[in-house]
């Protein structure tokens, strides 16, 4: 069965005819060709597919696209400023070497952005807990944790 799905992605209205069984992540990657959102598992553990739906971090592999009908979606491609400079959270990942192969990174950043909104000065422990839904195989998390602490502070400071 095909359905028409419409939503706003990174500020732009988009719509397409898709099969009802199309996952949100598939819609983002295949229909919109926004391939920064990744798929690393099939059991909702890895978090590489994390995007924001109406301002909150969700796993785009765990809902069908139709569940995002009318929603406001933000993907990694919509995070940096229009002029090409990085968002403070992205900048913090770069400065603290919070990424290696880069595959889990968009999900990490998207989750961190949402987390930082409520935690302007998080402790290391809070950050580690906040990453329960994101897996990284490269960094041992050490520098991701540092990045998120720094990024959250930078976001709070830039308000």
């Amino acid at each position: 069965m095909s359905v028409k799905v419409s939503m706003k992605v990174n500020g732009k209205p988009v719509s397409a005819e898709v099969e009802a069984r199309t996952l949100l992540v598939t819609f983002i990657r295949e229909n919109l060709r926004l391939t920064g959102t990744h798929v690393g598992c099939d059991t909702a553990q890895c978090g590489a597919c994390t995007v924001h739906m109406n301002g909150r971090a969700i796993k785009s592999c765990s809902i069908v696209a139709m569940q995002a009908e009318g929603a406001d979606i933000l993907t990694i491609e919509g995070v940096a400023n229009g002029n090409g400079t990085l968002h403070p959270m992205q900048q913090a990942f770069k400065e603290n070497h919070g990424l290696q192969c880069g595959f889990c990174t968009p999900g990490m950043v998207m989750n961190a952005l949402d987390f930082a909104k409520g935690h302007p000065n998080p402790s290391e422990k809070e950050v580690r807990e906040s990453l329960e839904g994101n897996l990284c195989r490269c960094t041992g998390y050490h520098n991701i944790v540092k990045s998120i602490v720094a990024g959250a502070r930078a976001m709070a400071a830039s308000k």
């Binding site: 909702a44 978090g47 994390t50 739906m53 909150r56 971090a57 969700i58 796993k59 765990s62 809902i63 989750n111 949402d114 987390f115 906040s130 329960e132 839904g133 994101n134």
Partner: peptide, 9 residues
Amino acid sequence: IGDRQVRHM
């Protein structure tokens, strides 16, 4: 329950 992202949905 689950993780942050799961709790949002």
